[in-house]
C-alpha cells in the first residue's frame, strides 16, 4: 500500500501542498485535496527554549486525494510531496515509510 509520510515537526504552513494539489485536481475555491491544520501558537508554562512554544502545522489529506495516481504511474512524485518547501513529505510503500520514522521528530503517516 502506498502512503505519504509527513514529518510535520518541520511543516512551516507555507500552503505549497494545498495549492499544488488544487491546481492538479482543478478544485474550485473552498475545496482541497490536502488542507493544513494549525495548532497554536501557545506557550507551555515552565518550559524554555525550543520546548517553550507549540505552533504546529499538519497537512491533512482529504477525500479528494488520490495520491496523484496518474502522476505516480508515470514515475512522478505526488504534487504535494514534490513541492513541499519544508522538505517534510515523503511518498512510498507504507512499510518503507514506517521504517523511515526514527523517533527523532514528530511524524504522521497517511494512507487512502
Amino acid at each position: 500500500m502506498k502512503g505519504i509520510l509527513i514529518n510535520y515537526e518541520f511543516c512551516t504552513g507555507c500552503h505549497s501542498c494545498e495549492v499544488a494539489c488544487k491546481k492538479h485536481l482543478e478544485l474550485p475555491a473552498g475545496e482541497f485535496g490536502i488542507k493544513l491544520s494549525e495548532t497554536g501558537p501557545f506557550e507551555y508554562a515552565g518550559k524554555t527554549g525550543a520546548d517553550h512554544w507549540e505552533w504546529t502545522y499538519l497537512p491533512v489529506m482529504t477525500k479528494a486525494c488520490d495520491m496523484c495516481e496518474d502522476r505516480t504511474a508515470k514515475g512522478k512524485l505526488p504534487m504535494c510531496v514534490q513541492h513541499c518547501q519544508a522538505w517534510c513529505m515523503y511518498y512510498g510503500e507504507v512499510e518503507d515509510l514506517a521504517k523511515k520514522m526514527d523517533g527523532s521528530s514528530r511524524c504522521a503517516l497517511f494512507t487512502r
Binding site: C14, V19, K23, Q82, C84
Partner: peptide, 10 residues
C-alpha cells in the same frame, strides 16, 4: 529541488 511556493504554483 522542485519545491515551489504557492505563488509560482499559481
Amino acid at each position: 529541488n522542485g519545491r515551489l511556493c504557492m505563488r509560482c504554483l499559481n
